[in-house]
């Protein structure tokens, strides 16, 4: 096993473990903290794959921005007493469907098609490294989706204003 693979397995199992803890813990603040841990581990996996830019974005946007937003909501909205009893039937059905999905994924990944060579083989240093390569791709091949994405964000912003405003 290469060192990269060892690091990957450690990070991946930590990410899975904390993801399970997100749904397991009964305290929402704990859930949010576990979510940060998941995001950080995934960022670590990106670094193993030599996608430094994606890793940085992962930390900034997800671990930073989104979880902070979660914590704000949790603290502003009083969740005490709103959780209610767990619905047995739904929990059973969800458990069956969830386990079946996990089993399917495990079966498919065990079928041998997955690449287990963890060190990245793509050398981007000629193109000025990771960040520059992403920038090139965004402004050349992926220009159109990039522009549509800006429209998407605008729609999200309008939606937030329209729905949060007091009167019409």
């Amino acid at each position: 096993m290469t060192p990269a693979a060892v690091v990957f397995y450690i990070l991946a199992s930590l990410a899975l473990l904390s993801a399970v803890m997100v749904i397991w813990s009964r305290n929402v603040v704990h859930s949010a903290i576990y979510l940060v841990l998941t995001f950080l581990c995934v960022a670590g996996v990106y670094i193993v794959l030599r996608a430094e830019f994606v890793a940085a974005v992962q930390v900034l946007v997800y671990a930073g921005g989104i979880v902070v937003l979660f914590l704000f909501v949790i603290m502003l909205v009083n969740l005490a007493g709103t959780l209610g009893p767990r619905v047995r039937v739904h929990a059973t059905v969800s458990a069956i469907v969830g386990c079946a999905a996990v089993a399917l994924l495990l079966y498919v990944s065990a079928s041998g098609g997955l690449d287990t060579d963890f060190g990245a083989r793509i050398d981007l240093s000629a193109q000025g490294g990771n960040l520059q390569a992403v920038g090139w791709a965004l402004y050349s091949d992926y220009l159109l989706p990039f522009e549509i994405a800006s429209l998407l964000l605008l729609v999200a912003m309008i939606g937030a204003i329209v729905l949060a405003r007091q009167k019409y």
């Binding site: 159109l144 989706p145 549509i148 994405a149 429209l151 998407l152 729609v155 939606g159 729905l163």
Partner: peptide, 17 residues
């Protein structure tokens, strides 16, 4: 697929609102 995804979300987000 990238364009499909981004356009699909633009449409869906407008509809959610």
């Amino acid at each position: 697929f990238i364009t499909i995804f981004v356009s699909l979300e633009t449409m869906a987000l407008s509809f959610y609102i």
